[in-house]
Design a protein around this nucleic acid. Sequence first.
DNA 1: CCAAAAGTGTTATGCTTACACCCATGT
DNA 2: ACATGGGTGTAAGCATAACACTTTTGG
Lengths: 234, 234
Amino acid sequence: MYTVPDSGAKTAAHAVLAAVLQVRDCRLQALLWQRAREPYAGFWALPGGTLEADETLEESVRRHLAAKVDVREVSHLEQLETRSDPGRNPAHRELATAFLGLVPSDADPALPPDTRWHPLDELPPLAYDHEPILLAARERLRGKLSYTNLGFALAPRVFTMAELRDLYTAALGHPVSATNLQRVLLRRRLLEDTGEQRHYGSGGGRPAALYCFGSTTLEITDQFAVLRPPTIAR
Amino acid sequence: MYTVPDSGAKTAAHAVLAAVLQVRDCRLQALLWQRAREPYAGFWALPGGTLEADETLEESVRRHLAAKVDVREVSHLEQLETRSDPGRNPAHRELATAFLGLVPSDADPALPPDTRWHPLDELPPLAYDHEPILLAARERLRGKLSYTNLGFALAPRVFTMAELRDLYTAALGHPVSATNLQRVLLRRRLLEDTGEQRHYGSGGGRPAALYCFGSTTLEITDQFAVLRPPTIAR
DNA sequence: CCAAAAGTGTTATGCTTACACCCATGT
DNA sequence: ACATGGGTGTAAGCATAACACTTTTGG
């Protein structure tokens, strides 16, 4: 065990894949490109490519993503599962490490002609095992929205509570109350009031306060749902 | 992007590693083996080895684990992060996918002479990047104990609440009340009363009821800590 | 003045922790 | 009897969901 493989070992190729999600038009959408060549010609695929010798997986996925979007728009990137089924790529053995990428809702990066945003509830036929990967990415996002500050990655720098409610609603797939969302996030001190105001929709109405997230790196805000440590003696 | 690599591509070797955890003597312990050869001679390492051409990562980790323990004792196995830092193995480029393995507390598998259980709060010097991997595995376990039924993988088939309390205490690293643990797990319908009874410690005392977990596959029992879907109209 | 949207006050609910107290058994 | 551990009853705490109500603007 743990033998040193000779450098000529015939090992599997390693690919990276990115499930890049953004809320556009109040719907959670994924960045996909349409394959021109076999296999899976005409099918849609996640952005990605092969890992090079001198890069980490994250560096690699950023490099491949750069071919599809402006990577500076990607506000969050985290590793998901590594897929290893020998049959997942019919052509040759290939491992693939998937990533979850998030883009703020106000970004609208230029895309190559073969690339488009697709709502996750109306997916076209996807190549390889990309559909389960994409759905797993959505589950990861939904879970982390509940117990971390990950909302920062979906939102513009400043936003009204109504806008933030629409983002959470689209990402979670169920109605969210702006009232309660505000209280939960304020209580956890994730949101800061910028002091500015802005109108949200057309027509009248009281102008909305503009908020921003205090931190733009992932933080766990609700670590123990249950079985939490005993409260310190008082 | 997504070019087909020629089959002679010089790709990185791929290894699997297993952070196998068990509660023994009321302490969370990890299965480690001591390296005899350089590099890291004398250091302790996670069980693992290289991925072969025709196996999945999970099959591979089970195969390598079989050299250290009776794999039938492993009650749960799940994938963790894939490490890809080019410098993580000084000798040659190597990716490693880590797994979390759990062994019930009543199992006492025979071990090879170079292999031992080590409490996680008294770790010896570890080879490569195995220490952060091991600590990440513990964090994953701690998180999932709170919102899934993962306790089944640490516990014998049947157990008293006092025994289960000791397991949770060791795994979580803080005191757990048997009283409240019972209520939380019963409310979530994870525990079943077997009807049998048994004594726990020495000395007198009321005999304890024996419980078992209803399911022995991972289930999420507390999906939404917050931001849960609206309650259906009543 | 009215409609529309934002935000606050308040109550209800559910789950959890904490802790006192009762129960069953061995010596 | 009494010590020892197991289990139940109950109250308190806390965060969230739900919803009525007030506030602020545009037309």
